[in-house]
């Protein structure tokens, strides 16, 4: 709901300027603003920060840590639901129609604005799930306003790697970034303490070598 509202009130006027970079700046601004607001509301001196209860079992199942297994299942479920929604329902078809060609979508009777609101709503819902999952698996289990800052960097690296307009790319990119990160922390001592070099390096490399990502569409303008 909040996501849909944000699309309507903030994103749409900015989209009219025709520059997609403006939208990125606005969302970044909102991220920082809402974070600061949360700190103002929930973190007071002398007050213990609220703790997030663990969502997943802490014991090991089949030799895998409970939270790892839980996150993997959550990811699989999200992918399945999203795929079914986009590929198997009329609403999903309409959403993809708007993404593909907004003018033609309007000409077959779809309201592009409503679909964009729905898209932002979906994105916000997925974001909320991701935020809850991150908070509940964070090492100290405490709310922290800097919680998502690292996640944001990793997510951006994953999206850049997979291609910004590809769902499959997002998942594959995320897995690659995650595995690469674990491996470097484990085996490359030189990066100890500066692990964030990896995602930034990946972003840079992808943008240099393959700006559309692994699965992204190459946009070709026919004249």
């Amino acid at each position: 709901m909040a996501g849909a509202l944000i699309e309507r009130l903030l994103i749409r006027p900015v989209m009219r300027t025709g520059n997609q970079l403006n939208v990125v700046i606005v969302t970044l601004g909102m991220f920082l603003g809402i974070n600061a607001l949360a700190a103002l509301l929930f973190i007071k001196p002398g007050l213990e920060t609220p703790k997030m209860p663990g969502l997943f079992p802490t014991d090991e199942i089949l030799g895998i840590e409970g939270k790892t297994l839980g996150l993997a299942l959550l990811l699989a479920l999200q992918c399945l639901v999203l795929w079914a929604l986009l590929q198997r329902t009329k609403v999903g078809l309409a959403l993809r129609g708007v993404a593909s060609n907004p003018d033609s979508a309007a000409l077959v009777g779809i309201h592009p604005g409503r679909m964009l609101m729905l898209g932002w709503g979906l994105a916000a819902a997925l974001g909320a799930i991701a935020g809850t999952a991150t908070a509940s698996t964070a090492a100290n289990g405490a709310f922290d306003t800097s919680l998502m800052q690292q996640v944001l960097v990793y997510a951006f690296a994953a999206a850049a790697l997979g291609g910004f307009d590809s769902l499959l790319g997002a998942v594959v990119g995320g897995l690659i970034v995650g595995i690469a990160n674990s491996l470097t922390i484990q085996y490359v001592d030189a990066l100890a303490g500066i692990e964030l070099v990896l995602p930034f390096g990946l972003i840079l490399a992808v943008l240099l070598v393959r700006p559309n990502g692994l699965f992204g569409r190459t946009i070709v303008e026919r004249v």
Partner: peptide
């Protein structure tokens, strides 16, 4: 999918 979109409304 194109044809189905034509009938979506």
């Amino acid at each position: 999918e194109n044809l189905r979109l034509g009938a979506i409304s």
